Amino acid sequence: MDTAASETTITAEMAEEAEAQDLLTLGIEEEYILVDAVEPRGVEAVDEVVGQVPEEMRGSVQHEYLRSQIEVASPPQLDLAGLYQAMGRLRRELAGAAERAGARLLAVGTAPGAGPVARIVDDPRYRRMREHYGDLSPGSGMCGTHVHVSIPDAETGVAVLNHLRPWLPVFQAATANSPMFGGRDTGYASWRSMMWERWPTVGPTPYLKSVDDYHTLVADLEQTGAMLDEGMLYWYARLSANYPTVEIRMGDVMPTLDDAMLLAALARALVATLLRDVRDGVPAPRVPHPLLMAAHWRAAHDGLEGVAVDLATREPRPAWRLMRQLFDRVRPELERHGDLETTTVLMGRLRAHGTGAARQRAILAQRGSVADVVDWLAKATRGDVPRD
Rank of each mutant, 00 (worst) to 15 (best):
D153F: 06
A154Q: 15
G157H: 10
V158I: 15
N162C: 07
W167L: 01
W167V: 02
L168N: 01
L168E: 05
V170N: 00
F171H: 04
Q172I: 13
Q172C: 13
A173Y: 14
A176F: 10
P179K: 14
M180K: 04
M180E: 03
F181W: 10
G182A: 13
G182R: 15
R184Q: 06
D185A: 11
D185H: 08
Y188M: 12
A189T: 13
S193F: 14
M194L: 14
M194H: 12
G203I: 04
P204N: 02
K209L: 07
V211W: 02
D212M: 09
Y214S: 02
H215S: 08
T216S: 04
L217N: 03
V218P: 00
A219N: 09
A219W: 15
Q223T: 13
T224Q: 09
G231M: 12
L233I: 12
W235K: 07
R238V: 15
L239N: 02
S240C: 11
S240T: 11
S240N: 09
N242H: 09
P244T: 12
P244H: 13
V246H: 05
I248K: 01
R249V: 15
G251P: 06
P255L: 07
D259N: 11
A260N: 11
M261V: 04
M261A: 05
L262N: 03
L262M: 13
L266V: 12
L266N: 01
R268T: 15
T273L: 06
T273I: 07
L274K: 04
R276P: 00
D277L: 02
D277A: 13
V278Q: 01
V278S: 01
V278P: 00
R279F: 04
R279K: 12
R279P: 00
P283L: 04
P285S: 05
R286H: 12
P288K: 10
H289G: 05
L291K: 11
A295F: 14
H296W: 14
W297H: 15
R298H: 15
R298M: 14
